[in-house]
Design a protein around this nucleic acid. Structure first.
Lengths: 246, 246
DNA sequence: CGGGGGGTTGATATTTTTCAAGTGTAGTGG
DNA sequence: CCACTACACTTGAAAAATATCAACCCCCCG
């Protein structure tokens, strides 16, 4: 393969509306192409970056699916997120110049490499990009607040229902089905993310299947009753609404 | 009180090294004073901002102590953090132009109001400030990863020990004791942050006191054995270290 | 000095984990 | 092509952790 054989360009990337600012003049849009240095392919199971590695760039996922996780010396391990096409990964490395977590591809993947010094340079000149970078980081903070709510106050089935609804919603935003999905991760990885053991995740899946909310065949999941899944998450919703009206 | 009676200035603020970039030329340092529009006092129990409120500014805490929390329609509630002098609050509002959580003063407090459009403007001109803003947001993301680890993989006593060690370490960085602290929040608020019920928090405190790790009198806590507290968090540390050497 | 919110403690209930056994299933090599 | 193996997943029973319910205490403050 010749180096730089394919022209790397955000301006005609079909994922642009997912990872880039929308309201750009044609001129600024062209400048964005300076952002992407190269692309990089990552095989399933391989790390995009690892804890301790020097931080140099953010990554925009073009294809594939990642998990990020942190590990402590005493063997604890926590999946902190799952990322898919159009999402930005690597923000953890900015503060200390080194990555503080591992990003691992859960299927063969390709990312755009966005050198961070170039991001900072360009966002000084293009306010829309600057604002976009801030929003991306803020969005991650808000997402993590949601995970804290999940981990801190939900029971097992509520957590799994929330997780499934979130996944399917993000997939739907990318043109996939609203009701069908293929899990890219194991029960153990789901469990780690949700603060549960893999057996508990499995049992919750079985319970949902029993009740007719979903159909589960290994990693293939079909959501049969979205509203019922939502009701699992917020069982008191109706009551609370009533109370507010009273 | 005359408006603007006191000259608001970062350049001679004793908290500067906590909330501002360190490596500034004298000229740039002066420019930072443009950042702070006003100061604002918040009484204990009053909100600095609330969920749904329009986002206009970040806040640098000068004095006092805050909690941030999110609430859902169905009555769930999660404390997402406790913030003290020198820390920046309000990052959640950037992404959607509205705040997504409540920030409540747990004691009488004063903050510097940093209008966000001014932050963006100035950080386009002062790279050190730009970098600093990025680092502050990244630090918050990394902090929340730590909370996810805590909520997802630690048991009650490990969570409380982690919490105490983190609090006392931050207080020490501000010139307070390494071993003594006064909690500004209730057991219920601690519990909400740690994903536990207040009774569980209380029991964990009692257990620590029984074992001679801490002395607890209501909200006054004295840490008697820091190493033992650390061992509560990472009980396998020693074993793991041995294994690494073997 | 009385009231009330915050805190502690005990007994019981519930949820989740742990341990253990067994069942697919996808990939591999004979 | 089929058997085999490794890994992921499921399920059950018992154990552990935490929540819930309830009673009580203790201050701190007005």
């Amino acid at each position: 393969m010749t180096p730089q054989a394919i022209k790397v360009a955000c301006s005609n990337c079909n994922l642009r509306e997912l990872c880039m600012p929308m309201d750009l003049s044609v001129g600024d849009l062209g400048r964005l192409d300076e952002l992407v240095a190269t692309r990089r392919k990552i095989r399933r199971g391989a790390p995009l970056f690892s804890n301790g590695e020097r931080f140099t760039a953010l990554y925009a996922i073009r294809t594939g699916f990642f998990k990020t996780c942190i590990a402590t010396e005493d063997g604890r391990d926590q999946v902190t997120g799952f990322q898919m096409a159009g999402e930005i990964i690597g923000l953890d490395g900015i503060v200390g110049d080194h990555h503080t977590c591992d990003a691992v591809a859960l299927e063969d993947a390709e990312v755009c490499v966005l050198p961070f010094d170039r991001i900072e340079e360009l966002s000084r000149e293009v306010p829309a990009l600057q604002s976009h970078v801030h929003k991306i980081m803020s969005r991650e903070i808000v997402r993590e607040h949601g995970v804290m709510l999940l981990l801190g106050s939900m029971r097992a089935e509520e957590r799994l229902a929330t997780f499934l609804l979130n996944l399917v919603q993000r997939l739907h935003a990318r043109g996939f089905s609203q009701s069908e999905l293929v899990l890219r991760m194991t029960r153990e990885e789901i469990g780690s993310y949700l603060g549960l053991k893999l057996e508990t995740v499995s049992r919750a899946f079985s319970k949902f299947a029993e009740e007719g909310l979903v159909e589960v065949k290994q990693r293939h999941v079909r959501i049969l009753d979205t509203d019922a899944l939502r009701a699992v998450v917020a069982p008191h919703e109706a009551g609370a609404a009533l109370k507010r009206c009273a």
